[in-house]
Computed example of a mutant assay.
Amino acid sequence: MDLEVSEPVDFSTGDHQHLVRKAGDDSAQPESKETKATPPSPGPKQTHGKPKPKTDQRADFYVVEISDETTPEESNAEASPFSEASIRRGFIVKVFLLLSAQLVLTGAIIAVFIFWPGLKNWVHRSPWFTYSIFPAFFGVLIVLACCEDLRRQVPANYILLGLFTFLQGLMLGAVSVFYEVDEVLWAIGATALVTLSLTLFALQTKLDFTLLNGVLFVALVVLLIYGIILIFIRSYWLHLLYAALGTVLFSLYLVMDVQLLVGGSHHVKLDPEEYVFAALNIYLDIINLFIFILQLIGRMGR
Rank of each mutant, 00 (worst) to 15 (best):
W186V: 11
R152I: 03
L160H: 12
F201H: 12
A192L: 13
V215F: 12
A187F: 01
G189A: 15
P135R: 05
L203K: 08
T205F: 03
V194E: 15
L238G: 07
F137T: 02
V123G: 00
V218R: 05
V218K: 13
R234P: 12
V175D: 15
T205P: 02
L241G: 11
G169Q: 04
F115E: 08
L230D: 03
Q153P: 05
V123W: 08
S132Q: 06
L198S: 06
V222K: 05
C146E: 08
T165A: 13
Y253G: 11
F164S: 04
A156F: 14
R125C: 09
V218F: 03
Q168D: 10
W237Q: 14
V215Q: 08
F232L: 11
A190K: 02
G118L: 10
V181L: 08
P135M: 10
Q168I: 00
V123N: 09
T165I: 01
I225V: 14
F209I: 02
R125A: 15
L198D: 02
F250V: 08
V154E: 10
A174K: 00
D182P: 04
Y158A: 11
T130S: 12
L167S: 01
A243E: 10
L245S: 06
G214C: 03
R125Q: 11
Y158N: 10
L150C: 03
A145Q: 13
L207G: 07
Y158R: 06
Y131L: 11
P127L: 08
Y242K: 01
V184A: 08
T199M: 15
L170F: 12
Q153M: 13
L245A: 13
I228Q: 06
V123T: 12
D208N: 01
F209S: 03
P155A: 05
F250R: 07
I133E: 07
Y158G: 02
I142F: 14
L254D: 06
F129P: 02
L196K: 10
F164M: 05
S132G: 14
L230A: 05
R151A: 13
C147V: 00
W237N: 11
Y131S: 10
D149S: 13
A111H: 13
F134D: 01
G169L: 07
F134G: 06
C147M: 09
V194H: 02
L211H: 09
L172V: 00
L252S: 06
L163Y: 09
Y236C: 07
F129K: 00
V255W: 10
G162E: 09
F178R: 15
L220G: 07
F137C: 02
V143R: 12
L216K: 08
I233R: 06
S251R: 01
L203P: 00
W116L: 09
L249C: 03
L223E: 06
N121H: 12
F113Y: 12
L238E: 07
I188L: 13
P155C: 09
V194D: 05
L245W: 05
V143M: 06
L238D: 08
A174H: 06
S126G: 02
W128I: 00
L240P: 09
T191P: 00
T195N: 03
L196A: 14
F134A: 15
T210L: 06
F138Y: 06
F250L: 06
I233S: 04
P155W: 14
V140G: 01
E180G: 15
V112F: 00
C146W: 09
L172F: 04
Y179W: 07
F217V: 15
F209V: 02
A243S: 14
C146A: 12
W116V: 14
A111G: 13
L238T: 08
T130C: 05
A156I: 09
